[in-house]
Design a protein around this nucleic acid. Structure first.
Length: 431
DNA sequence: TCTGGGGTCCTAGGACCC
DNA sequence: TCTGGGGTCCTAGGACCC
């Protein structure tokens, strides 16, 4: 058996831990650029706000319905997530951290325990120690445990725990195909066209048909619905196969000079992420896009790959490659809305392909330099030291964050302070 | 006016090898 | 008329996840 622990409305719940006034009222958290809604409280869902909906479409609810709005605060959410994951490790020998707010727990061999009581204990522990509400599903396969967790969340009268075992036919008949983990919008439409409406229908379709139309991934989902585990629990944190830094700009950017600085910033950020996982990359990709929603404006999008002579983790050749790539694909006369840098073909140090006889980058020198870069930037804050090609920070913010809460748990100066009056706590010394 | 960011896996097709 | 078999690697594109 496998358990899935998932924090309810994670980003919103994190904000509520430090601001109890947000409880019981509609709250949403926005995506990076304050563009889309990425988390909603139950009250916000009831107002009809959809996941991924552009914020400007619901903005009038701020005044009309008392909607509370927050920019995403990844420093806070990342730290809260780490606290939850640490607590979960005491409940199972193997924990797979699947995303920032959910984890699979391997319950193999625990079938003779009271799994329901154990799931309840997980829920109570997380709530008591971190202040976050979670739901727990338990089932024999990952696809089924996703369904169990979803049912636990949907049942408002229940206590946040749902166990699926034995014959699940009735449950599967109540689940629409689009609500199955791994069946997205396109596959759900395809299944619908072919008369498969529920998880039960998919589970009993022929293997050959599923394989043909939904590829091997679909076939695995089908078997998991029948209780045969096909998707392994992976507790090792896998090294990333690609690393990217991409941004949509609040104001479109037309000048090549401004883009040169921005792509240098993205490349430098990618280098930091790559070094954190102790990898080297062989390929750098730059892409540029105009605003695809502005259909009345001329559209252009392009992508350019640069291969390094030898795999590298140094920011300097990355910045150089990014600027070179921009020179190759930049076209004047367009308003660029989005750009990004991707690193790929990532290998452990010294293991990647070398494409040239001589590596133009002095590995030792760059290695030491980057250690100093990273140490300074960790100690004194991001971009304390950077390459001359990067932006100077004087151009003003390119992205916007309208309402960012404090980094309550990771920055001393932003820690929550509480005033206690002597009337509120008679008999206790006030500090 | 306004529309995120960061990933993974799979498939088809082309180029190339012996 | 008729034109092999068995591979690898790469890329682009499509699907999905949170």
């Amino acid at each position: 058996m496998t358990a899935l622990v998932d924090v309810n409305n994670f980003y919103v719940s994190c904000e509520r831990v430090f601001n109890p006034r947000l409880r019981g009222v509609p709250v949403v958290v926005l995506s990076n650029n304050d563009g889309c809604v990425v988390a909603r409280s139950e009250e916000a869902k009831k107002l009809g706000i959809a996941m991924g909906q552009p914020f400007f479409e619901v903005q009038d609810m701020v005044g009309k319905n008392g909607l509370q709005v927050y920019s995403s605060n990844y420093a806070l959410y990342g730290d809260m997530s780490a606290r939850v994951m640490n607590l979960l490790r005491q409940f199972a020998p193997e924990v797979e951290i699947y995303s920032i707010d959910e984890a699979f727990l391997d319950f193999t061999g625990m079938e003779h325990f009271d799994l329901y009581a154990r799931a309840l204990e997980i829920r109570e522990t997380i709530l008591r120690c971190v202040g976050l509400p979670v739901c727990v599903g338990v089932a024999p396969t990952k696809v089924l445990v996703k369904i169990a967790n979803r049912l636990a969340k949907k049942d408002k009268q229940g206590n946040g725990v749902r166990i699926l075992s034995g014959d699940c036919s009735d449950v599967l008949k109540s689940v629409e195909t689009g609500d199955i983990w791994g069946i997205g919008y396109q596959y759900a439409a395809l299944l619908q066209r072919n008369g498969l409406k529920t998880a039960f229908d998919l589970a009993h379709a022929s293997d050959a048909w599923v394989r043909k139309h939904l590829s091997v991934t679909g076939l695995r989902i089908k078997k998991e619905l029948l209780g045969q585990p096909c998707i392994k629990t992976d507790t090792e944190v896998p090294a990333r196969k690609s690393i990217g830094t991409t941004r949509s700009f609040r104001q479109p950017v037309a000048s090549e000079a401004a883009l040169q600085a921005l792509v240098a910033d993205f490349a430098a950020r990618c280098g930091e992420k790559l070094r954190r996982q102790n990898g080297e990359a062989s390929i750098l990709t730059l892409f540029l896009q105009t605003n695809r929603f502005a259909t009345d404006q001329p559209q252009y999008s392009a992508l350019f790959n640069v291969s390094f002579a030898a795999p590298t983790s140094s920011t300097l050749p990355m910045v150089h490659a990014a600027r070179y790539a921009l020179k190759r694909i930049f076209r004047a006369g367009y308003e660029y809305k989005r750009a990004g840098i991707l690193l790929s073909s990532i290998t452990p140090p010294g293991n990647g392909p070398q494409l040239a006889m001589f590596d133009p980058v002095d590995r030792n020198k760059h290695g030491q330099l980057m250690m100093v870069f990273d140490a300074l930037n960790v100690r004194y804050g991001r971009n304390t030291i950077k390459t001359g090609a990067q932006s100077t920070g004087r151009q003003g913010r390119l992205t916007s964050q309208c309402k960012l809460s404090a980094r309550f748990t990771t920055v001393w100066e932003e820690m929550l302070s509480i005033k206690i009056s002597s009337d509120a706590a008679p008999g206790y010394p006030i500090r």
